[in-house]
Nucleic acid binder design. Structure first.
Lengths: 345, 345
DNA sequence: CTGAAAGCGCTAACAA
DNA sequence: TTGTTAGCGCTTTCAG
């Protein structure tokens, strides 16, 4: 027998195609009894919807937008590139995605931007923005308007029902901790933790995971407090120089932010990268080069292409009601060294 | 303006829908001049095909098969599970995949099986089998019959035009080498390399990569020849016990095959796993447990779900002529430790 | 509240 | 060699 279609379903339930369609799409105007009859028939004949046929008939393009911080760094850059690279494939899936940049540090502006979105013809939004009450509320407003939302790269734990597409930052921190411990061999010394800011929840989670592991090595590793650079190279330099004086001597540096160009240049200038274990986040052209020349030892990263595709799939599945393949959506905490660096950009 | 359809294309080229369809699908019976006219029009109006509509109209299911070795181990098991898990999603894509098991060590049987396939109603095959002349020829016969083929997990470098879905084994070996060097700290000692067999090209590639890195640490690491267990626990035990006598003492073990249950039990019984760095391949329930209890230090793996999906996508794209998104198909050499172990099975 | 019928973009007989 | 036409499985007016 062939796979049952809406026609079969209509026959089985003793109704017309239109009615079948109505209950399939949970539209109003069907007597509860009738609806129930259809639902029964679905079980009986084991009906499964053909979504591509539905999309074809609907003749509708799904409009998605990525809301990204307007601050420019390599990581954001990669995200943009991946979004662009995906769009060709998306044409075949009746999906259009655009990018919107907004000031990451002004919660009100972000919230405003989100509200604008909910007014326009948008079906889904991936939001990358620090968690704030304003943003959280704006997200809830999106939900209320029936617009699909996912939290992208930055978790939004207080915006209920908001799926998170991104790495588990605590696991990432733990992983760095373990690598730091192992890569420093049996050496005794201090470890410097450097970040742009500890304001963000991501940083806090990473630090938490990092400490959980390094605590086990307290007999030989002394981990200082997280030093914040506020994106200021001068400040970064002072911090690193200071740390160099420490007793016992410095054996490792954990670069916690993904924006680490300035900091790495400072470390370079002091000529210590080769002697010290340096571990950071995100695989970018810059960190890639550092892994190759040995000035960084490992990078913890999330596959940006996967991140983008996963966000899109999740949005689409929320919009169409078709549920996703969970195992495909899990974002892995990847360890990259020179030896297992993927070849492409 | 709306996205151009075949109708627009027909109008633009001054031909009928049927003719458009013929050139789109490279079918015979079109005068070259006419075909050219259509091709011109495609450029001009920037036409892109709607594949899901095409599939709908074709009313055809794509039949794919995975040809797997009939030897049972955890890795094969995971592959089967992932194939099963993917099938739900595949229903929406008009794709049916089945699994065929065959004796991996008998090239003639494998080739026979492949030939049978080419007789039946199959559109694409993913083949996991050691490279042999027989298999290579059988694969070429598939190509000749217009059946899509990919080499799955095992490369087929001599079967021309056969795309490989799997990890770069040399890079995997290099990665293990680097981890071994770093995880052993500054210690001096010997490293045991254990494998089921060195017959397979995969093993040779891994070994090659491994040596390339450990050679740099020759001053403190002595790496012995690859010891083959032939799947015999007794033999494994003898080898390991022998290695334990070595001077300088053993500091690490590289388990090169993915079938390592027996070997690990031997290592356990000798009570040395905790003192020695043990690195192996593939994340399975078994290796997962070893990472947790600390008897293994790291595992190099390829995401099996990704592997399966990628093979399917490549086959489908070969069949439909729709080209894939390269960046999505790159299979990564993943490093898994206890800290970054993905949660699910 | 329910149904009949036209059509989404493409394919595949069947005619011409 | 080319065109006409009836669908594929589903949605969506528009009547009833």
């Amino acid at each position: 027998m062939h796979k049952p279609t809406t026609k079969d379903l209509a026959k089985a339930a003793g109704v017309s195609l239109a009615t079948v369609d109505r209950v399939l799409n949970a539209r109003a105007g069907v007597r509860p009894a009738t609806a129930e009859r259809v639902r029964q028939a679905i079980k009986e004949i084991n009906f499964v919807r053909d979504f591509s046929a539905a999309n074809l008939a609907r003749k509708k393009d799904y409009q998605l937008v990525f809301l990204l911080p307007d601050h420019d760094d390599e990581f954001i850059d990669q995200i943009q590139k991946q979004i662009a690279g995906t769009s060709r494939v998306l044409t075949h899936e009746r999906t259009k995605v655009s990018i919107l940049r907004t000031s990451a540090n002004d919660p009100h502006r972000v919230a405003k931007e989100i509200d604008n979105l909910s007014a326009s013809q948008i079906d889904g939004v991936a939001i990358m923005a620090p968690e704030t009450p304003q943003v959280r509320d704006a997200i809830l407003r999106l939900h209320a308007r029936g617009i699909a939302v996912v939290a992208f790269v930055s978790r939004q734990p207080n915006a209920k029902r908001t799926y998170y597409v991104g790495i588990n930052n605590e696991a990432a921190g733990r992983t760095v901790g373990q690598l730091m411990a192992r890569f420093t061999g049996q050496r005794h010394g201090t470890v410097l933790v450097l970040t742009e800011t500890m304001q963000s929840r991501d940083s806090q989670e990473r630090r938490h995971g990092f400490d959980a592991i390094t605590a086990k090595y307290a007999d030989r590793l002394t981990v200082g407090p997280s030093m914040e650079t506020y994106g200021d190279p001068q400040r970064a330099e002072k911090i690193v120089k200071m740390a160099l004086q420490s007793q016992p001597p410095m054996v490792g540096i954990y670069l916690m932010s993904h924006d680490i160009l300035d900091i790495m240049h400072v470390i370079d200038d002091l000529g210590m990268a080769q002697r010290i274990v340096v571990i950071g986040h995100e695989l970018t052209p810059f960190t890639r080069a550092r892994l190759v020349d040995g000035s960084m030892d490992a990078v913890i990263t999330q596959d940006v292409g996967h991140l983008v595709r996963s966000a899109i799939r999740m949005l689409r599945s929320k919009i169409t009601g078709m549920d996703p393949l969970d195992s495909q959506e899990r974002i892995r905490v990847e360890i990259i060294m020179r030896e297992n660096m993927p070849e492409d950009a």
